[in-house]
Every structure is written in C-alpha cells, then in structure tokens.
Design a protein around this nucleic acid. Structure first.
Lengths: 187, 187
DNA sequence: AATAAAAGAAAACAAATTGTTTGTTATCAA
DNA sequence: TTGATAACAAACAATTTGTTTTCTTTTATT
C-alpha cells in the first residue's frame, strides 16, 4: 500500500480513537474526525464510505490479530485442554487484551465499548463453534449446541465488559478462574 | 395527564416503533419521527429533548411493567425457589416477553435490539442483585458476588438476543430449562 | 356556557453536517 | 525523471437540528 495511504489511514484511526475516548460514537461527526486527523474532506471519503465503515475497519484492525493468534492456540490445546492447564483459550484472550499492544483498552473503556464487543463476540462465536465441531463432543445434556456456543461467547463478552467497567482490577488469571468456575460445569 | 399529551406521546411512540422495524436506530431522524407521527416540530421537542431521550422513555414504558410484575413474583418465590418449581423468575420474564402485550417483540426483532436489551440488562441486574442480598446466600466458591450477578443477567440477555435472532423457535419453558442447565450449577 | 390555561401547529431561522464535485498540488514508485 | 496516484482546498446543494414567534385548538374549571 502507498505510504501516503498508510499515513492517512493511521491518522484517521488515531483521531477516531482519541475522539472515542472523549465522547460516545453516536455523537462523533465525520467533520470532527476530519479536523482531528487533519486530513482533507475528500481524503476521508476516499478511504471510508461512512463512519460505520470506519468503525468496522478499526474493529478488524484491532481484533483481527488477537483472534488469529488465539486460533493458533486452539490448534494445540482445545478450549480447555486440561482441567488444570493454565493456558486456556480464554486466558490467552484476556492476556492479549491486558498486554494492550494496540491500545484496545482505551477504546474498550469508553461509552461505546459495547459496540466493539459486538464485533468481538461475532469472531468469538466462530472460534468456539469450530472448537465444538473439532472436538466432536457428544452432549451429555440435550441442550442445543448453538445455545451453548452462544452462552459461552456471550458470557465471555459480558465478563469483559464487567471487567472493563470495574477498571480491570482483576488479573487475567483470576478472571479466567472465575470464568472456568461458571462455564466448566456446562461443558 | 392531559388527553392531548397522551395522544401525542402515543403517536410518537408508535411512529418510532414503526420506523425501528424498518431501519436501524442510528439512521432514524427526528424529522422522520415527526412526519410519521404527524405532529408538529415544536410538539415533539416539548415532549422529548432528543432522540436518545425518546428511546429511554420508550424503554421505561416497555420494560417497566415487566420488571415490576416480576419483582412481585420474586417476593413469593426466590430466583429459583425450588429446583423443580416451574415458575422461575426467568421463565416468568420469558413468558411476559412472549405474550407481548406491548408489542415489544417487534422492537426486539430489529437491528437495534441490542440497544433495548442494554436497558433490560440494567433492570435485571438490580433485580438479581436484590435476590442475592435477600437470600443472604453464602458463596461456596470464592467467586465475587457481583461477578455472578453480572454473569447471570448477562447470560440471560444474551440468551434472549439469541432467541430473538433465531426467530423464537423455542417456548419460554424450553428456554428456561436450557437456562437452568447452564446457570444452576453456578448457584 | 364562558373562559383562562395549556397544548399543538405552521413557518421561518441559523448553524451544522453530509457527501460530492472540480481544479490544483504534492508525493510515490518504477 | 516521469507518469500515476493520492491528498488538498473550496465550494455546493441537500438535509438535519433545535429554537423562536405567532396563531389556533382543545381542555378543565367555574
């Protein structure tokens, strides 16, 4: 990609992030993004069709590598390979979040965090779905599989939301223990 | 309240609901609401300060009575009074939703359903919180109580979302059974 | 039935936002 | 070096927002 394009893209992402830390998504205007990023009006629209489009792109940029890195992790271990194994997929995800390579946390700690977590949940759903298929687990209960998949990814996302809103006082390992406690009985 | 006010309020709510069935919340303009409701511009702003304000009012109108009626229910039984009792609080809530006295379902089956369910979750959180306090339950695990409360209300809302998106194929009783299966081990 | 108070309507308003177009300049990659 | 590409500024029509002003209609009360 053209070096100029990279710069503008980065500038717009940065401006958008800055604004999201200040105010909610719905109150941010394209105009403000343009001003903050200090790019021409035409330039913005050459990169993104709408504000929603920008949000989507940012989410992909942010969650893409976390998810794919986690996917590698699930190839070696399962969702919860071993009842005592410290490296569960969920712990992995939480650690990634806490390391915060791409300043995700600032974004997640904002009024519009739910917006981001919806994207996150979609990716998560696929990931967990695959796990179920691969492990080819038989249901001891007669609860539908997609209910369980939704329950797990949903609970995880709600937990992250709770974690963030509570100013992330717990370590990823602690959280993972809580999550195991409420999810393992189901599996 | 003045009969005229009631009528306008109802007209605006109806218009808003109609529009929500067509398009997402963020794309609905105050102008459209005014046109659809067939009320004067001044009138709208006399009732609601902003579109967000309207949304909030609608949510209170919709969920208010469901929650309070459920509150009565929790006074007699607990969250899950008896392991075999059919009338759990959750089943109660789901039945209320399905009966759909106030056409909530049309609203929940729209692009912006998550918006409504956020309001719902807040009410739910209080309700469950109170249950915990009243029952004065001792934790056999060392999982924090507010984690559990969030887990339960979060899971419930995610389940309802899943239910609605899947076109509500399950009965409230079925759903309640699923929910018990994944939640009771935690309690 | 008369009346004062309250609510609604219509029109106009400035200010801001959106998405597009046009012509020009700067930067990149080969 | 040069052709292609991206960025820019300025202007644009259309739309939206929230407010103000004036006038009409509907209530509730006497």
């Amino acid at each position: 990609m053209d070096r100029r394009q990279q710069k503008t893209r980065a500038a717009i992402f940065a401006a958008f992030s800055t604004l999201l830390a200040e105010k909610s998504y719905s109150k941010i205007t394209v105009q403000e993004i343009i001003d903050t990023a200090n790019v021409g009006r035409t330039t913005f629209y050459a990169h993104f069709e709408t504000k929603d489009d920008l949000l989507k792109a940012l989410c992909e940029e942010l969650f893409g590598h976390i998810i794919s890195s986690t996917l590698d992790c699930t190839h070696t271990h399962g969702l919860y390979s071993d009842r005592n194994a410290p490296e569960s997929v969920f712990c992995h995800l939480l650690q990634h979040l806490q390391e915060d390579e791409k300043n995700i946390l600032e974004l997640l700690y904002c009024e519009s965090s739910e917006l981001f977590l919806r994207y996150f949940k979609d990716s998560l759903n696929e990931l967990i779905q695959n796990q179920f298929v691969n492990q080819n687990r038989k249901n001891n209960t007669d609860i539908p599989q997609d209910f369980l998949v939704n329950h797990i990814s949903g609970s995880f996302v709600e937990m992250v939301l709770w974690w963030i809103k509570g100013r992330m006082k717990q370590t990823p390992e602690e959280l993972d223990r809580y999550f195991r406690a409420v999810i393992e009985p189901v599996l």
